[in-house]
């Protein structure tokens, strides 16, 4: 189901899509807020993932809709550029990314979950995270055909692990779905989109933006490196918090798996993917670092929002 509109643009856009109105020459209002822009963009990106039952599948490549999407993307890209600066540092990108992570002073949701969060607060985080975790790794799969042999082989190895090494029962988004059901949450894809704050939409849309555009492939891989390199220890803290609160083992198991898997993926993404890509294509360096810095910035914004609401930052 399409999400609820969050402003004039998403209202008119979603109505036109559901009514299957002709889109040629149709103009839509400017987004009236980040929420309005991001929910419209999220819905347009979803046409490329699982689509919506009530919409015509042909809309995925409708040129008039792609034009709407491009305008939204430009506004989003401008905002990301205003939020994120590319570090001007020498040395392998893996080292620069590790330094970016080391100086990041964002509050930690995982540490809060480990020590103090209530069950309701954890369920809120799980609902927010479900928007990504139920399609975990999918945006990165689009980058594979855009790479040369070195980074491609390493990325394919990483994705194969994310996708359960051929076993559906080990596939990461399956593990998360099982955890959600065990925690008595609805594991239907996209079910909690209307609960997602704009920061969650921005996190998800940045990954889709980087995955869908060849010109952003370096950013997609820099984002991946930060995502993986900031996962092992927080995943252990999440698992400890879930056990402290008596959540079912299936939920904690999802995070246990990420402690070990992401300790591997971090090294793969930094050394065998990002470093090799930049060695082979030096003009990708700034793009990789932009993606890395974007991941940190958007995660920090989400953490400040959600912890701020709980007076826990």
């Amino acid at each position: 189901m399409l999400p609820a509109a969050r402003g004039r643009l998403s209202e008119e856009l979603f109505s036109a899509l559901v009514a299957n109105e002709p889109l040629a020459g149709r103009s839509f209002p400017q987004a009236e807020s980040r929420d309005d822009e991001q929910i419209a963009l999220w819905a347009l990106y979803e046409l490329h993932y699982r689509g919506f039952d009530e919409l015509d599948a042909d809309l995925e490549w409708d040129p008039d809709l792609l034009r709407v999407r491009r305008d939204l993307e430009r506004s989003f890209e401008d905002r990301l550029r205003s939020w994120v600066s590319i570090p001007d540092a020498a040395g392998p990108v893996s080292e620069v990314i590790e330094k970016l992570i080391a100086v990041d002073d964002a509050p930690s949701i995982a540490r809060f979950v480990q020590r103090r969060a209530t069950g309701d607060q954890v369920r809120t985080v799980l609902r927010h995270r479900s928007i990504y975790h139920l399609k975990e790794s999918d945006p990165v799969s689009w980058i594979v055909p855009r790479l040369d042999a070195g980074p491609k082989a390493a990325l394919a190895g990483l994705q194969f692990d994310e996708y359960g090494s051929g076993q559906p029962s080990r596939l990461h988004h399956r593990l998360f779905a099982e955890g959600m059901r065990a925690a008595e949450l609805d594991d239907t894809y996209g079910r909690y989109i209307d609960d997602a704050p704009v920061e969650i939409l921005e996190l998800n849309n940045a990954m889709s933006l980087f995955g869908l555009h060849r010109r952003w492939r370096g950013a997609g891989l820099g984002h991946l490196a930060v995502f993986e390199a900031t996962s092992s220890i927080p995943s252990r803290q999440m698992a400890q918090g879930l056990r402290r609160l008596g959540f079912p083992e299936a939920v904690a198991h999802y995070y246990d798996e990420h402690v070990e898997a992401d300790a591997v993926h971090e090294q793969l993404a930094l050394r065998l993917i990002c470093d090799v890509l930049v060695e082979e294509e030096p003009d990708q360096r700034d793009c990789v670092l932009f993606g890395a810095a974007t991941c940190l910035e958007l995660e920090a914004r989400y953490a400040r929002t959600v912890l701020g609401e709980w007076d826990a930052a």
Binding site: L158, D161, S165, R236, D262, A263, V264, Q267, L268
Partner: peptide
Amino acid sequence: TERPFSAVCRCGKSATRPWCDGSHKL
């Protein structure tokens, strides 16, 4: 090993030895 790539702990602090769990960063 059960993964396409695996990471073996070298710092001795991992709780999932012989595999790495990121503890070296602490």
